[in-house]
Amino acid sequence: MKILKYITSLSLIVAVGQSAVAQVLEKREKDWKPSEIYLSADVVGLTRLLNGDVQNEFQGKIDFDVFYLAADWGRSNLSSKGEGFDYSSKGSFFRVGPQVNFTPYNKNRSSIYFGLMYAHASFSDQIDYAGVDQQWNQTNLSYSNEDLRANWLEATMGLNAKIIGPLYMGYVLRFKMAKVLTGDGTLAPYEIPGFGAASKNSVFGFNYYITYRFGLRDKPIPIRPKIVKKRVEEEE
């Protein structure tokens, strides 16, 4: 009986060696022709209006298969006052980079995406001091940077969900890193437009967007590829 069991087991091993069943993912036909444009406005920056500051930020992106090419533009006009000083800065920034959509099969065209972006800011700042010297005379000092520039990289993760019709809403989490600042002199800049605290080399950021989708053509929702079984015959 043991010999029969060994023969049966050996026969099964040989059979598996001769032919195997593999699971493969069906190939999906890719569509690189653009079909939609998203235009977005950030609402987080509007909260700074309560302090008298201005910070506007906008985004546009276009699709290529399951990818997007995104571009941001923004401007800021910030000020801060305290006892004996008055600080102000103004400038603009842009970002550009690719995104990949992890949910291309969503019937509402909502998306969860990851992106990498290059960013650049051009700005100026100034600080005015008012005080008295040792002889109790009024003194006024002023320092400024007229041509500040900053570059950095961003890794982003975002969600864009359909609300009604072509209207979407969503948020973006940003990790800003590898900052390079040039043009600063005696005055150390306090904040970089689009980046944040100038004293830090890496920071986190957050945007909440209201988005309008413009359809360029009627692109069908892609069908999710199925896992199929394929028999692979071993070469003799």
Rank of each mutant, 00 (worst) to 15 (best):
K5N: 14
S9Y: 06
V21M: 09
Q23L: 10
K30Y: 10
D31F: 11
Y38S: 03
L39C: 05
V43L: 13
V43S: 06
G45V: 01
L46V: 12
L49Q: 11
G60I: 08
K61W: 04
I62K: 03
V66K: 14
F67E: 05
F67H: 07
L69P: 01
A70Y: 01
A71D: 01
G74I: 08
R75D: 09
S76L: 00
L78W: 08
S79C: 02
S79E: 09
S80Y: 12
S80Q: 13
E83R: 13
F85Q: 04
S88R: 15
G91K: 02
Q99A: 07
V100S: 02
Y105R: 01
N108I: 02
N108Q: 12
S110G: 09
A119G: 12
H120C: 03
D125W: 07
D128V: 15
Y129H: 06
Q138E: 11
S142I: 06
D147E: 08
N151W: 00
L153I: 10
A155F: 13
I163F: 10
L167M: 14
V172Q: 11
F175Q: 10
V180C: 03
L181T: 14
L181Q: 11
G183D: 03
G185T: 15
L187K: 07
G194N: 04
G196T: 10
A198M: 05
S199T: 13
S202Y: 11
V203P: 05
Y209W: 12
R217Y: 00
K219S: 13
I221K: 03
I223V: 15
P225G: 06
R231S: 08
